[in-house]
């Protein structure tokens, strides 16, 4: 009897997680899959006379893939990611290493200050930066520098994202640094190793798994880029309503009211994201070994 109960326990424990996953990920996913094979067609007459959903096979997928806007949005996302990923991981590592130097002062408050932007919701951060960029309201020289130029806009968007995510990644790397055995440092110091050499030769190689994990998180975050460009959009002509893939999907679904094409694009996007995560996590586990 007791053995049987014990056998049930694991299922009971994972049940809430499975239920939530099914309810909010699997079920909507299946619904999106169903939608992606359908299309709305009007019945007839000038104003359509009503409409019905018909099965259209892979038509929506064809339309989505043939849409040049989708490909430009992917290109723009990659450009932002190219700035966003190295800057986030680089600054996070730099700050973590600096905070780990024994003689550093005000370590606690500095750590909190660097972490704080992570606690600011993305929309609010983007609005705030938006006002800082706009010539009419900019306190940082927006009337001399065009933060919404055709090239600078990529830096402006990436900057908001970096500002928001450096703190979290710094904490991850800093925690990894703190868990390294202190004897290592003592030995290095006795051998006359400088702080800089210690950082580069001992600390960085040993926290490489944490750095790899941060890179993976940041790469996934750049796939989900939405809040920053979407909030900056009404402020400038530089950001279109289909600037990154998720904005394109949103636009299709809720502005152009073509939920079906949006569903097809979403399904494609999920597979692309899965592929990226798979490759990335393989790389990470190789680094960890």
């Amino acid at each position: 009897m007791a053995a049987r109960n014990r056998a049930k326990l694991p299922y009971l424990l994972v049940a809430p997680a499975v239920a939530l996953l099914t309810l909010f990920v699997v079920a909507p996913g299946v619904y999106a899959l169903v939608l992606s094979f359908q299309a709305r067609k009007v019945v007839g007459g000038l104003l359509g006379g009503g409409s019905k959903l018909v099965f259209v096979g892979f038509d929506n997928y064809g339309l989505a893939l043939a849409d040049p806007e989708l490909w430009s949005s992917i290109a723009r996302m990659l450009l932002v990611a190219l700035l966003f990923i190295p800057a986030t991981v680089g600054f996070a590592l730099l700050f973590a290493l600096l905070l780990d130097v024994p003689r550093v002062r005000l370590a606690r408050s500095t750590r909190l200050a660097i972490f704080l932007p992570y606690a600011v919701p993305g929309v609010i951060a983007s609005l705030m930066w938006g006002f800082m960029y706009l010539p009419a309201t900019s306190p940082i020289g927006g009337d001399h520098v065009d933060f919404f130029g055709s090239t600078t806009v990529f830096f402006s968007v990436a900057n908001v994202a970096v500002w928001g995510s450096v703190g979290f990644n710094m904490i991850v790397i800093f925690t990894a640094l703190r868990s390294l055995p202190a004897e290592l440092y003592e030995a290095a110091r006795i051998d006359g190793c400088s702080e800089l050499r210690m950082a580069l030769r001992i600390k960085v190689p040993l926290v490489l798994p944490a750095i790899a994990m941060c890179t993976l998180f940041t790469a996934l975050a750049s796939l989900q880029l939405f809040n920053e460009p979407n909030t900056l959009r009404p402020l400038s002509n530089a950001v279109s309503s289909t600037w990154v893939p998720l904005m394109k999907i949103y636009e299709d679904a809720f502005v152009d009211s073509d939920v079906n094409k949006a569903a097809a694009t979403s399904v494609l996007f999920v597979f692309a994201a899965l592929a990226v995560s798979f490759v990335a996590s393989r790389t990470v586990s190789r680094v960890n070994r």
């Binding site: 009007v42 000038l46 530089a238 279109s240 502005v255 152009d256």
Partner: peptide, 24 residues
């Protein structure tokens, strides 16, 4: 004479295409 039945597509096209034309 009349407004189109998919005016939302036309309007989002205007914001994006004219926005890009002004930008570039």
């Amino acid at each position: 004479s009349m407004w189109g039945p998919d005016v939302t597509v036309t309007f989002s096209g205007y914001t994006d295409k004219f926005g890009a034309a002004l930008q570039n």
